[in-house]
Write a protein that binds this DNA or RNA. Structure first.
Lengths: 341, 341
DNA sequence: TAAAACTGTACAATCGATTGCGCAAAGTTT
DNA sequence: AAACTTTGCGCAATCGATTGTACAGTTTTA
């Protein structure tokens, strides 16, 4: 078996120069003569020399690795974001280290510990549903680790972030329902302490207010945004004094739940009941009727956070900035909300 | 700002002992007295000491990191696999470093270089469509890096692997179509040099043969397994002398393409044309009619590869083994293939 | 009681790359 | 020609943890 990895010392020995000269030559240090540089670089290439990342990381105190923490890797949106980040970061020779929290605070804390431990250069985070307290996140900033949020940010922590304008997305969504003629529009909301869900609720309220409708408390139903949540919200709607004629759900799976429950009760969509969701999960295009929803632009979001980090990393010391980027969401109108007037 | 990270030297200084003693104390080395151990461990805990992974990796020549290379992170199946791996590996304090190839050999090569460079302890790989040559993979084995495949393996390389029995999955799928009464069953196949796609084709041929049907060459249509591929295959089917009454597609997206093309032509599914796919993409449950398909058990696959690696890592030196695990696929019968006889 | 074995710890090298400093040789400036 | 500058490179320390070896003191064995 051949030597596993060659080092600058191997090259140095072969050329009868010192390892430090080799290192400098490889980095095109101006104090090294052109001839030495050429000789070193040529030999390095011919041996297919690859610097040991761990050694240089240790010395330089930075790992060229970015940690990512998401609730679940296998959720379409998060997978898209991660895919986008990987594309951008790989191009700049950064690695990605990925952890999932399964929406549990405990896992989030240990993921942060793990990543800090691995001395990642930055952590990109989308908080779990359980995260209501910022202590564990604050420690990152104290340690001088770059921190960025996407989608699910933690308010009150000064960090760069990329989100879509959830409020606007919800507003456009509900406005569309109103334009179709729906009036008694219920809202299946997510956990209120999560910024994005609160924003979606507010967008809903705004659109309704603009149409002169003052939303009664009972119309807003906070649920877990899964099918069961939608079902439960639909059943709750049956008990209301005002009959719902549409549902705007803060998540697509909840919308699916509403749709299935409604159909089970013999309602026709969109005629008897309009439905819209949020997230543009791939399945929504294939539902029957297809589901109106809002696209969150996951891939772009990932690319943008990654670029934000790269910029920060370049002008290193200047930690301050903390840009906050808000992307425009895209309303996708499909059949579940189109009334044939 | 407080000190960023504390080291064994800090602890050593505080207790007036040497760093090596601290290191041994933390590892419960028998030669260190109980009292010293206690003192060290207590101080370490109180300072929330975290060992510098890079330093110990450098020294020990292993990184406690596993590299994963997949065609695309944001494909449901791969995201599930990665999710499963993360769960298992995180529990054993291993990290995951992820690269995507976008189905391009060039990216696969550079991903391998990157990961080798980062001195990962193992690489878990699902090859790209372009990978027909094994040179870049073989180097891994030569360098003594553990290598595992999942789903898309490279035949002819001796490495651990986890796959589902694609042949059986296809066989069950087609057998089901035959039992429903379909006879002229076309097959939309994937690239033939990829093992899994060839296996699916063979399963198809086997099932047909068992029913006494000798598949004519024209019935097997090799396509890119995306919607357009399905559409194109459907159109091709119109030109055949024998009229197709069903399509078994090696991928769900191709099946979707067939379904949409067929519907555009006024065919009713499953009455005029039966359709089945492969992969159990989430959207298949929501198509109308819902799509019969085969589940690939991504999450389990990820967990199993991860465990396979952990076992290898424990009994370190014994590299040999190279277990090859084959999971039973699950046929999911839905409406797209159920004839009301 | 001398020799052997064990205990508890420190020293120093090591992993591989990086970098401040020093120094000699060559080149420039007054 | 004396006094700087620049050029080209090596030495040695450093990042933090690990580990082989040495060594003094204590205990056991023959």
């Amino acid at each position: 078996m051949k030597k596993q990895h060659i080092t600058i010392h191997d090259i140095a020995r072969e050329l009868n120069i010192s390892a430090s000269t080799v290192s400098r030559a490889l980095h095109n240090h101006p104090r090294i003569s052109q001839s030495t540089r050429d000789a070193v670089q040529q030999l390095a290439t011919s041996y297919n020399y690859q610097p040991n990342v761990m050694a240089s990381s240790l010395r330089k105190g930075q790992s060229r690795t970015v940690g990512v923490i998401v609730p679940r890797i296998n959720r379409n949106f998060f997978a898209n974001v991660i895919g986008g980040m990987e594309e951008v970061l790989a191009a700049s020779d950064y690695h990605l280290m990925i952890c999932q929290t399964h929406e549990q605070l405990e896992n989030e804390i240990s993921a942060i510990k793990t990543l800090v431990n691995a001395r990642v250069d930055a952590i990109i985070l989308s908080i779990s549903l359980e995260t209501t307290d910022k202590e564990h996140i604050q420690t990152l900033i104290d340690k001088g680790i770059h921190l960025f949020f996407f989608d699910r940010i933690f308010e009150g922590i000064n960090a760069g972030s990329v989100v879509i304008d959830d409020r606007l997305g919800a507003y456009m969504n509900v406005k569309h329902l109103l334009e179709q003629g729906y009036r008694n529009i219920m809202h299946v909301a997510g956990a209120d302490h999560i910024t994005i869900f609160r924003a979606r609720k507010e967008g809903y309220i705004d659109a309704m207010a603009e149409a002169g409708i003052d939303v009664p408390p009972g119309w807003i139903m906070e649920r877990s945004l899964i099918q069961e949540g939608g079902e439960s919200a639909f059943l709750k709607g049956l008990e209301l004094s005002t009959k719902p004629d549409a549902y705007f759900c803060a998540g697509d799976f909840a919308a699916l739940g509403v749709m299935q429950a409604a159909r089970k009760r013999g309602l026709t969509i969109p005629d008897d009941l309009g439905i819209s969701g949020f997230a543009n999960e791939p399945f929504t295009a294939f539902l029957n009727p297809s589901l109106t929803t809002v696209d969150q632009r996951g891939g772009e979001m990932g690319k943008i956070v990654a670029e934000m980090f790269l910029q920060c990393a370049e002008r290193s010391s200047e930690q301050a900035d903390c840009e906050k980027i808000v992307l425009k969401p895209e309303l996708i109108v499909r059949n579940s909300s189109i009334l044939n007037k």
